[in-house]
């Protein structure tokens, strides 16, 4: 059964690596930021799967911290004036 959980985590890592393309390409700041949000959600799922797959129950707590902090960067992004605007491509 453990092998299945690890395989599932590997699959999620691959989807995250695919989503990285969106961070690289953009084109707008919002696109990049929401891709980072995706890594938060997928990261939580990966940590939960690894907690069972590697038999490390402490990883559930790491997943909890991921869940709490994944929104912090997004809120900082939205609240901060002066970051590249959505309208045009930034320099």
């Amino acid at each position: 059964m453990n092998a299945i959980w690890i395989g599932a985590a590997l699959f999620l890592l691959l989807t995250v690596a695919a989503g990285m393309v969106r961070v690289l390409m953009g084109p707008r700041p919002g696109d990049r930021m929401l891709a980072a949000q995706l890594f938060g959600t997928a990261g939580v799922a990966m940590l939960l799967l690894l907690a069972w797959g590697l038999e490390m129950p402490a990883l559930v707590d790491v997943a909890l911290v991921f869940a709490l902090l994944s929104a912090v960067a997004t809120v900082a992004f939205v609240r901060q004036r002066g970051l590249p605007r959505e309208g045009g491509e930034e320099p």
Binding site: R28, G30, M33, L34, Q37, G40, T41, V44, L48, V60, A63, L64, A67, L68, S70, A71, T74, V75, F77, V78, R85, E86, G87, G88
Partner: peptide
């Protein structure tokens, strides 16, 4: 609890990103 946290923080964060995209042109 973890799922609910991700659910609500994710929905709120997406709302904020959408609002920023709308108010800053697009």
């Amino acid at each position: 609890l973890i799922w609910l946290l991700v659910l609500f923080s994710g929905a709120a964060a997406c709302h904020l990103v959408a609002q920023r995209a709308l108010t800053q042109g697009e």
